[in-house]
Design a protein around this nucleic acid. Sequence first.
DNA 1: CAATCTTATTGACCTATATCAATTAGGATA
DNA 2: TATCCTAATTGATATAGGTCAATAAGATTG
Lengths: 195, 195
Amino acid sequence: MHTAIADHIQNHIQPTPAEMHIFLSTLNEVSVSRGQFLLKPGTHVKHEYFVIKGCLKAYYLDVKGSKHILQFAIENWWIGDFNAFYNQIASNLYIEAIEDAQLLSINYDKLQEVYEQAPIFERYFRILITKAFISQQKRILSAQEKNTQDRYLEFCQSYPNIENRVANYDVANYLGVTPENLSRVRKALKKLKLS
Amino acid sequence: MHTAIADHIQNHIQPTPAEMHIFLSTLNEVSVSRGQFLLKPGTHVKHEYFVIKGCLKAYYLDVKGSKHILQFAIENWWIGDFNAFYNQIASNLYIEAIEDAQLLSINYDKLQEVYEQAPIFERYFRILITKAFISQQKRILSAQEKNTQDRYLEFCQSYPNIENRVANYDVANYLGVTPENLSRVRKALKKLKLS
DNA sequence: CAATCTTATTGACCTATATCAATTAGGATA
DNA sequence: TATCCTAATTGATATAGGTCAATAAGATTG
């Protein structure tokens, strides 16, 4: 039942069976249907989530009320409001299911206990956050040095088949451009492919 | 001599004196003068650096040869090519001293030993990278939702007094805008202050 | 299979920022 | 202090992408 996350863990660290058990026994199963929210702004963030099945997005609304997508998550990704979770403050994110989703949640207090009892999991999360940091850095750079077309192509490569799972307006939003602009870029790309 | 970093560590974790000793004894002192490089592209990255004194910038050149600044570092900041260090691959960054600088370096292999002998330091770096991740996320969002003027004001707040230590063209570069644009923004802000 | 609702596309126009080219202002150096 | 040299500013113009409004194309539902 927890094989997906056990595999994910073993791809990053080598815990003993006892340590693995300590971690896995803290997890809880959660399901959300398409359109439902795992988290809304103002909530005290007690959990982070590992995606077993489905697709979700994390976003917030800025002062002008515009939406900004921070992250998509599909199978084998962690999703959450890392800032609010880490600092144990109220969330300012929405996490919404784009498809019906099954997840595993980890509770903040229980995670602190895991860190005491099985410190190897400090390493697991250190590695995950390091990877997230690096890929986020690439996102900043990409936004600075590339135009919409190149960023869209890059996005399609790093999230393969995502086009079929995520609406174009959400992709546009993630890239920080308007749906209209993305539409024109996609049109230009189609033309290129044909010729 | 190592009090600055010992303080920094103690602000994040509570190691035993023995653990602290293990960590501190792996550090080496490094000095670079203004204009000199701590790291250049193509180098195998063996170290990350903690700034005791001075100011540095980390940047890279994109395919068109344009420069992009990823990070400034001043006293009590860590700086390095985290991607290359973590993955133990060749760097693609320049790290250059903007002021004469004194640093402490930590070696990759020695850090792995520290992790084995004093696992509490997994936590130290997990916390640091988490904070870096969060502040980087704010940088992405800021670039998406704000114009140059608001981003410049935000920058001045998060790096206080940096104006006196960093050239405007480097600030502009960090913000992802041209020096000309930043100059106009600064002019507009001066007018506002006067009236 | 209509009717309705949502998403995507297209067109016309606008704006923030980039680009290119001078010019000015400060620091460093002789 | 005069001379360089680099950084900052200013002006004129170009452009990618935004905004607003109108269709068109898919989905979804009764």
